[in-house]
């Protein structure tokens, strides 16, 4: 299968996306901000719409909107704590609505829209692979350099603030990394399914492991195998790739949960 360039590109894109989603996804699950990342990814759809209207690369538009929404969320986090949840919901639907309006002005691109919502790993051009690699490098180096701050912030935000770590900046940086990850994943599984790839691999990894660094590395490996496996199945059975990857992931999560239960029952 790998002799076709588009399949080779798809596999490489999947591997590139796994790096980001394993690292950032672990912290998202740990810090319990799945909903926040959902908000950022859906807001990115506004950017996709705008790019289609202006005929620029939709990844750039998505990046812009995801960034803006992560700034918005981190400001809300500081200013109006109580309503953060509702505010994220509003951001979520606003981004989607803007996207739809923009797209309605740019007729003739509707088939593209479907691929951004549900992913099209088969149609990743080489230029996107380069962009994805750059995003990965940014994400990995930021996570490496700010590891102890991000861990402290995720574990106990209040103490971390009390000791004088600039938690608001750390949160903003972290949400920006989420934004980058969302854009990376968008090509693979689409905006609507991004949350699944941010949460399922880390959740399986946490079930198998207790050490944070190992959880992160294992999340990356799990994400890589789920995406590759889903991709292979989708080609084999002629199914949409994004949705197949998600279903393979859900099946893996279910299997791992059952095995873990069984193992615990035997240990007890």
């Amino acid at each position: 299968m790998l002799q076709y360039e588009f399949i080779r590109n798809a596999v490489i894109a999947g591997l590139l996306a796994s790096i980001a989603c394993g690292i950032i996804g672990t912290f998202i699950v740990m810090k319990r901000i799945v909903f926040v990342s959902g908000g950022i990814s859906h807001a990115a759809f506004g950017g996709v719409g705008l790019s289609l209207l202006l005929r620029t690369d939709p990844l750039l538009g998505a990046l812009l909107f995801a960034f803006l929404s992560s700034i918005g969320i981190s400001v809300m986090h500081r200013r109006v704590r109580v309503t953060e949840d509702a505010a994220i919901g509003i951001l979520w639907v606003t981004g989607m609505a803007l996207g739809v309006i923009f797209i309605s002005f740019s007729s003739g691109y509707t088939s593209d829209v479907f691929s951004y919502l549900f992913g099209s790993i088969i149609a990743v051009p080489r230029s996107d692979l380069i962009l994805m690699s750059i995003l990965d490098i940014i994400i990995v180096s930021a996570a490496y350099l700010l590891y102890k701050e991000i861990v402290a912030f995720s574990f106990d935000e209040e103490f971390t603030a009390a000791i004088g770590v600039p938690v608001e900046s750390i949160y903003l940086i972290f949400l920006s990394l989420v934004a980058l990850t969302v854009v990376l994943l968008m090509k693979i599984v689409g905006i609507i399914l991004v949350i699944a790839m941010l949460t399922i691999p880390p959740t399986i990894s946490i079930q198998l492991n207790h050490n944070l660094k190992r959880i992160i590395i294992l999340s990356v490996l799990i994400a890589a195998s789920l995406i590759t496996c889903g991709l292979w199945l989708s080609i084999l059975l002629d199914l949409p790739s994004g949705a197949t990857i998600i279903l393979v992931s859900v099946a893996a999560l279910t299997a791992s949960s059952i095995i873990r239960r069984y193992a615990e029952a035997r240990m007890a």
Binding site: M30, R32, S154, D156, E158, A162, L212, I215
Partner: peptide, 13 residues
């Protein structure tokens, strides 16, 4: 600072 125990993330590995 020693905060009250109730507020942080117990499941954190």
């Amino acid at each position: 600072y020693v905060p009250q125990i109730s507020r942080f993330n117990y499941d954190f590995p």
